[in-house]
Amino acid sequence: MDWSYFFNEVVNNRDALLHGTAITFAVSLIAILAGTVLGIVIGIAVTYGNKPLRWPARLYIDIIRGTPVLVLVLATFYVSSAVGFNLTAFQAGALALTLFCASHVGEILRGALQSLSRGQIEAGRAIGLTFGGIFRYILFPQALRYALPTWITAAVEMVKASTLLSVIGVAELLLTTQQIISNNFLNMQFYLLAGVIYFLIDFAIEQVGRFIGRRLEQPTRRMV
């Protein structure tokens, strides 16, 4: 194997690779952050909402989680333009992953919230907190501990799912790698390189997750 040729090609294509990595990183980050915010709203609605709130949220979780991500990506891209929203491939891809992430976060949060005892809500009510305060100070911090490991897994899934945006022409890391390979035919080397970069991103997410987990476990945390 000619390693010097490979390294030359890496250097020559470094801008494209960096750009592809940046796109992968950006689209994953958007999906994880926006999906988490939306997912929290859906998780609350499905756990504590009255019927008109709970049913749409339940339906959303079941439908989106039951749909292959690739179908979701293609549907968002083509349906949005068909109904007059001219989203770029990046926007459509980010939206599809956000919707997907939200369905998972919603379900994860529901599971965590339902594991908490009903007495926690009653104790919060008894000291005069409204639901907003009960959720923020009592339920959410506890649910976060239960949900964090699964949430990290979901976040890593988002990075992996971002490769599917290559089919609608988003120049993320996988599509960029394929384009480079089509010029230099270094299949194995560049796919390996892409694999290493994906691994590093996922590894970083898991480390951040562990860091947050340790912070949550600290013996005494002053809340006031």
């Binding site: 005892s117 009653e122 104790a123 009510r125 000291i127 005069g128 907190l129 100070y137 005494t220 945390r221």
Partner: peptide, 30 residues
């Protein structure tokens, strides 16, 4: 509700907070 104070059979302390934070939560937030 805050005009009354309730003590439950199963305590229902907030497990993620220290004893002091359990007492001060209502004082600061309510």
């Amino acid at each position: 509700r805050a005009m009354t104070g309730m003590v439950f059979q199963s305590f229902n302390l907030f497990p993620h907070m220290s004893a002091l934070d359990n007492v001060t939560l209502g004082l600061t937030k309510v």
